[in-house]
Design a protein around this nucleic acid. Structure first.
Length: 188
DNA sequence: CCAGACGTTGTT
DNA sequence: GTCTGG
DNA sequence: CCAGACGTTGTT
DNA sequence: GTCTGG
């Protein structure tokens, strides 16, 4: 899935998207995140249906059921701007070990949905590589896919971008308040 | 008909 | 154990 | 996603 | 708001 990510490339974000951001090595739900809809916009991570009296905190939406679920009706497509994300792998001892997924710092565009309350990231079954760590992953879109999604609400497997690298990282990232480059440092 | 849920993750 | 906050 | 709180009373 | 369960 995707419950924690990074956006650290200040320069690339300013050049490609025209927005000044502050590097964040530990973006957590409820943070304000950068989306393209397709205009750049800051919005809380966590979506609640407009009709929910008591707010629901939906940080992900399964693509498999997206079209059936009332909670996701009346949301609009967007792209969530990131340059990496974290997944935790359960070890034998039921210990959870964090891994960092990235494309050498390049900007990643995750498929998202939003409404006036916030934003959620679409997930799918993991690619075989990623499934070593976890069985769900965010949907990453290539260029054609980004346009199809935000302009036509059209999402297709051939638009998924599954080229990715990953490495084990230290436990620093576990604490939601800990935002530091050491979060993405490989474990030696 | 009204009341109550409506989601994901993972875990059992 | 389960919910809330970040 | 993980970490941290989770209750009441009254008082500051 | 809309769907499901009773």
């Amino acid at each position: 899935m995707c419950g924690r990510f990074t956006l650290t490339t200040e320069k690339a974000v300013e050049e490609k998207i025209g927005v000044k951001i502050k590097a964040n090595y530990n973006v957590t739900p409820s943070h304000s995140i950068l989306i393209l809809e397709p205009k750049p916009k800051l919005i809380p991570w966590g979506l609640s249906p407009v009709w929910a009296k008591k707010s629901i905190n939906l940080i992900n939406a399964r693509i498999e059921t997206f079209y059936e679920k009332p909670a996701f009706a009346n949301t609009l497509p967007c792209l969530v701007v990131a340059n990496g994300w974290y997944e935790w792998k359960k070890s034998n001892s039921s210990e959870k070990l964090p891994f960092y997924f990235h494309k050498d710092g390049k900007i990643l565009y995750m498929a998202g949905i939003f409404n006036e309350k916030g934003c959620a990231i679409l997930t799918k079954e993991s690619s075989s590589k990623i499934s070593y760590v976890h069985h769900r992953q965010p949907i990453l879109l290539n260029k054609a896919g980004r346009s199809a999604w935000v302009n036509e609400s059209n999402i297709q497997p051939e638009h998924y971008n599954n080229e990715i690298h990953f490495r084990r990282v230290g436990l620093f990232v576990n604490s939601p308040k800990f935002n530091h480059p050491i979060c993405i440092e490989p474990i030696s």
